[in-house]
Simulated scan of single mutants.
Amino acid sequence: MSELKTAIADAVKTAMKAGEKDRLSTLRMVSAAIKQKEVDERRSLEDADVLAILDKMVKQRRESLEQYESAGRDDLASAERAEIALIGEFLPQPLTDAEIDALIDAAIDETGAESVRDMGKVMGIIKPKAQGRADMGAVSGRVKVKLG
């Protein structure tokens, strides 16, 4: 069992014992998403797979948060912020801009990429290193700028 799955399962138990209903609800939602992916793929997930799921969940909540804020729904926006913070507890420390640039430069050097056509090769090297630690859409944009 991956360390992240174990940590999430332990957090569920702790939240149950402490009677933290909102926290428990979010943690159960995370556990259900992980379990669903395992059932769909018929295999036990590794930490990298769990990170991808958590990253996707945070991204979805950020999009919802923007929509709720623009609609003036502060009650729903605060709930999304709380879920983002809770899921973020299980994500690794985010990469700084300098670290992202260093990863991009190293990947470009490693692949010998010269134009935007080589972007897939570069992103293939960056993704496993930055998954869950950086917004991959933003990283992709920065790679385009460097290769463009």
Score class of each variant (00 low, 15 high):
97 D>N: 12
103 L>P: 09
104 I>A: 12
105 D>V: 05
90 F>R: 05
94 P>G: 12
86 L>V: 05
85 A>G: 14
90 F>P: 09
102 A>Q: 13
89 E>C: 05
99 E>R: 05
76 L>H: 03
92 P>K: 12
75 D>W: 00
76 L>Y: 01
90 F>M: 06
90 F>Q: 07
80 E>A: 15
89 E>T: 06
93 Q>Y: 00
81 R>Q: 13
101 D>Q: 14
95 L>E: 08
99 E>V: 02
98 A>Y: 02
92 P>Y: 05
104 I>Y: 10
96 T>G: 15
74 D>W: 00
93 Q>V: 09
77 A>W: 01
76 L>I: 00
88 G>A: 12
82 A>N: 11
98 A>F: 03
104 I>R: 10
93 Q>H: 05
77 A>P: 03
105 D>S: 15
78 S>D: 14
75 D>S: 04
76 L>S: 11
106 A>L: 07
97 D>E: 15
81 R>A: 05
75 D>M: 00
74 D>G: 03
104 I>F: 11
76 L>V: 00
94 P>S: 10
82 A>Y: 06
82 A>K: 07
93 Q>C: 02
79 A>I: 08
82 A>H: 05
93 Q>F: 01
104 I>W: 07
83 E>N: 15
98 A>H: 03
100 I>H: 09
84 I>H: 09
106 A>P: 04
103 L>N: 09
81 R>E: 14
93 Q>R: 13
89 E>V: 02
94 P>V: 03
100 I>G: 12
78 S>K: 13
101 D>C: 09
80 E>R: 09
88 G>M: 08
102 A>C: 10
81 R>I: 01
97 D>Q: 14
75 D>E: 06
105 D>P: 06
86 L>S: 09
76 L>P: 00
85 A>D: 15
75 D>Y: 00
74 D>C: 00
100 I>E: 11
85 A>I: 02
74 D>F: 01
83 E>I: 01
81 R>L: 12
90 F>W: 08
76 L>G: 02
100 I>S: 09
100 I>R: 04
88 G>W: 02
81 R>C: 05
88 G>V: 02
77 A>N: 05
96 T>W: 10
102 A>G: 10
102 A>M: 08
85 A>L: 08
106 A>H: 04
89 E>D: 14
77 A>S: 11
77 A>T: 03
99 E>D: 12
92 P>F: 07
98 A>L: 08
86 L>A: 11
103 L>C: 14
84 I>N: 12
99 E>I: 01
105 D>A: 15
79 A>W: 01
91 L>P: 04
97 D>K: 14
85 A>P: 06
88 G>N: 08
90 F>D: 08
